[in-house]
């Protein structure tokens, strides 16, 4: 008797979201089947995209082996971002650590000008993360949105506390928004519903929070996987946004990653590969060798 492999087809699909403008524009999402289910019906029009991380201030607690590839550029975000592109990043993820109110507490204007310089200097789309302080981000991100008007940055995190003001600025100035919720699929959907009342859902990317391997990664995996299940299999319009896995910091702050270079790169790679299997559409990495390793493994698919 012949064996016939079961083939699933799904009724829903993830929204296709464009980040960046003009020649820099990159599409993510759009898949109508689950990640790496190459045997099922449906398509995955856009492969997952990889970003490398840049900070707007010199990091002070990075392991030497993750600082090493950037050692000549860490004091200059523009050069640092260009270096990331040289290393093969399809996007640059700029983290506005300087604006953290418990740190340097840089002004929104200062931060926004720095973002503009980076955005203008690189040939790839830019992801911008504020400090995560909801009040400060509510001042910083609208300023960034206005200063970089029309460049279609991917801006976040928009939280339940501050999504309105961030979405309004992103709407006015043509940007895309990262909606972030703390490892909870019900709250994730809740924020998407609220955001979508005034903001186009096809310009939203979900950040469910990405924990590192050994530090709760399975929670992130489950939420990403369930998000794709409800969106692609059950057509839930409010979970059909692409997902960003912002995992670099969560991997590199572990004692394992700080113990040796090889271990650090493997830690980041394993976390990235796992979350890609769960359906992540953008992965934020830190070490260029991780990027190389993950890409090489995916090629052997």
């Amino acid at each position: 008797m012949d064996y016939k492999a079961p083939v699933e087809s799904y009724s829903g699909s993830v929204r296709e979201v464009t980040i960046g403008q003009g020649s820099k524009a990159v599409k993510i999402g759009g898949e109508s089947k689950l990640a790496y289910n190459f045997f099922d019906e449906g398509s995955i029009p856009n492969p997952p995209r990889f970003a490398l991380e840049v900070r707007d201030t010199e990091p002070d607690n990075w392991a030497p082996w993750v600082l090493e590839p950037y050692k000549d550029v860490v004091s200059d975000p523009v050069k640092w971002a260009q270096k990331c592109v040289e290393y093969g990043a399809e996007m640059v993820c700029l983290r506005l650590a300087s604006t953290d109110p418990v740190g340097k507490d840089a002004s929104p204007k200062e931060a926004a000008e720095a973002v503009k310089k980076v955005a203008d200097a690189v040939s790839v789309p830019l992801i911008v993360y504020g400090s995560g302080d909801d009040k400060k981000d509510a001042e910083v991100l609208p300023e960034v949105a206005a200063t970089c008007s029309g460049q279609n940055l991917l801006l976040g995190p928009a939280l339940k506390e501050n999504y309105e003001v961030i979405a309004k600025a992103a709407q006015e100035h043509g940007h895309t928004v990262i909606a972030q919720t703390p490892l909870d699929i019900n709250l994730m959907k809740e924020l998407n519903i609220k955001l979508s009342k005034t903001f186009p859902p096809e310009r939203v990317v979900i950040d469910p929070l990405s924990s590192g391997l050994g530090y709760g990664m399975e929670y992130s995996f489950t939420i990403m996987e369930r998000t794709k299940h409800t969106g692609v299999m059950f057509k839930d319009a409010m979970t059909q946004m692409p997902i960003i896995a912002d995992l670099a910091e969560e991997c590199w702050k572990t004692k394992e990653a700080k113990a040796s270079k090889e271990q650090g790169i493997l830690w980041e790679s394993m976390t990235a590969l796992s979350l890609l299997l769960a359906g992540a559409n953008i992965v934020v990495l830190r070490h260029p060798e991780t990027l190389g390793l993950v890409r090489e493994i995916l090629k052997q698919e």
């Binding site: 699929i185 019900n186 709250l187 994730m188 959907k189 809740e190 519903i193 609220k194 009342k197 369930r226 409800t230 059950f234 839930d236 409010m238 979970t239």
Partner: peptide
């Protein structure tokens, strides 16, 4: 049939 959120009435 649909994923719960506090905004289920507006879903």
């Amino acid at each position: 049939r649909t994923l719960y959120s506090h905004s289920w009435l507006e879903d």
